[in-house]
Design a protein around this nucleic acid. Structure first.
Length: 175
RNA sequence: AGAGUGGGCCGGGCGAUUGCCGGCGGGGCGGGCUUCGGCGCGCGCCCGCUGGAGGAAAGUCCGAGCACCACAGGGCACGAUGCUUCCUAACGGGAAGGCGGGGCGACCCGACGGAAAGUGCAACAGAAAAGAUACCGCCGAUGGCCCGCAAGGGCACAGGUAAGGUUGAAAUGGUGAGGUAAGAGCUCACCGGCGUCGUGGCGACACGGCGGCCUGGCAAACCCCAUCGGGUGCAAGGCCAAAUAGGGAACGAUGCGGCGGCCCGCCGCGCUAUAGUUCCGGGUAGGCUGCUCGAGCCGGAUGGCGACGUCCGGCCCAGAUGAAUGAUCGCCCCGGCGCCUCGGUUCACGCCGCAGCGCCGGACAAGACUCGGCUUACAGGCCCACUCUAUUU
RNA sequence: GCGCGUGUAGCACAACGGUUAGUGCUUCGGCCUUCCAAGCCGAAGAUACGGGUUCGAUUCCCGUCACGCGCU
């Protein structure tokens, strides 16, 4: 699992190795990675596959080639009124977003994810959520890059498992 | 020192790494115009600088601004408010004051107009629950009956009475004295209430004089009186507008002949009736705007008991839209618990104090057009004024 | 975001401001029956919370909380 501090260490390493501001392995998270239209949410709920974790329920849908959105994966988060007050819902959203931001390089492109939060998430830590979401992603066939020694992750290592999701996609299609 | 009252303020701090939204500048990319020098435009690409939640942002309970719709004027209905004066853009908010209630006190609380405009309600109990009656009682002076020669005595029939008793949340002013057959505001004194006059006060009211004893409660029951209120809300409203399907309009395709020097134009004939092209209008998805300079914030002076007003100077302080202000780590700060060391005290147990280490905890809660309030939630802490109790001097 | 409405036993509903808050189903116990069901008898169980008005509040008023509906 990749928790926050470990990511930080790897980031520090890459910084010390070289500035490389144009590197694709930074951890940005802009609007291209977000689902912004109600219709896209509805599509994902209707056509997507579903998997549940302790803190979340995730819907996943592979976009058709002619749809907009490009080669990026996209994320939409729904925190309903039932899962807490505004402060709790904000906390839930931010944690989920942080997970996707830190793990953006191995997640499969061309997919839409919708995450529904559950009330227990507002008191959970990022590490707990990461463990939970890793399990959920594996259920979709998306495997995070090799295990707990991720702290030695180099740009190459990060890039390598990015082929994994394709395999996962193929496996899912075969079903 | 302890207990308490009122008012004001804060709402963790610093750093590292990495992100998000807005603004400005630079670069890059894209296409446009060009007199090839440049000019201005867009970007969900990069870099730098800079700004980025609250005292309640909350509940949506009031009041406004702003926008659209409606509207001669007046009344009815409906709703809200309800001691007085003032503050304010306005308010159901605030300040000062009056009256009533609570507290030893500092202070706190109060929907606090009208019951003599009318209607209505009061279970059970009780004689009686609102124009009165008389259950137990008391009296029986007067009239009646009986006894007696008479004085007088008796009965309780007529009748008088409301002091005492009983019920109830509430019973037709209270206490005392006189008075009487017994009694009664029947009379008197004081208190309370009502009316009226005077004085003080802008006023709510207060104080005093006089009069007579005349009218119980509930209006958060209907109601009456006074004042206020048109409706809907930024998802208001304005602008641009793809695709698709309707609607409206025009053009062109073109030719031949004639008039004519030629063009335009006109006339006649021929061709296409459906498609095409273009434009217009409504308008969906979507986008832009409204959207942040405002009854604004800070400081000073000044008027006012105060709420607040006036003047001067300075400042620009979120504008997101499936919705940003985050995540992780380190150090510090505050509180609690435990361990241990040292010090004080004790014969000792123990108690107290400081430092260190470890663990746990640090609230309530986040803009959605903008303000003024109210209400509700809230760990911990700071400051000012005052009250009571105890002790010391 | 805005505008409305409702809270009564486990469930569905009643109750002019006035006895000990009723009715049906449910649950439990008993009777009946060979046993079960039905029937009969009995019992348990509630006014969302906090204030106020009133002699007295499920009812009237105010404030919280929860739930539901509508607009988009």
């Amino acid at each position: 699992m990749r928790t926050g501090p470990k990511q930080n260490e790897s980031q520090k390493q890459s910084d010390s190795a070289g500035p490389a501001p144009e590197s694709p392995h930074r951890f940005k998270f802009g609007p291209r990675h977000r689902i912004l239209r109600r219709a896209d949410f509805q599509l994902t709920y209707g056509e997507g596959r579903r998997a549940h974790g302790r803190f979340v329920a995730v819907f996943c849908r592979r976009r058709a080639r002619d749809e907009p959105g490009g080669e990026f994966w996209r994320l939409g988060i729904t925190a309903t009124r039932k899962s807490g007050n505004a402060v709790r819902r904000n906390r839930q959203r931010r944690l989920v977003r942080e997970y996707f931001r830190l793990n953006q390089h191995w997640l499969p492109g061309g997919c839409d994810f919708v995450v529904n939060t559950r009330s227990g998430l507002s008191t959970a830590s990022l590490a707990e959520l990461a463990k939970d979401l890793d399990r959920v992603m594996q259920r979709f066939g998306f495997r995070p890059p090799a295990g707990p020694n991720a702290e030695s992750k180099t740009p190459a290592e990060i890039e390598a498992p990015s082929e994994g999701p394709d395999k996962g996609q193929k496996a899912r299609k075969a079903q």
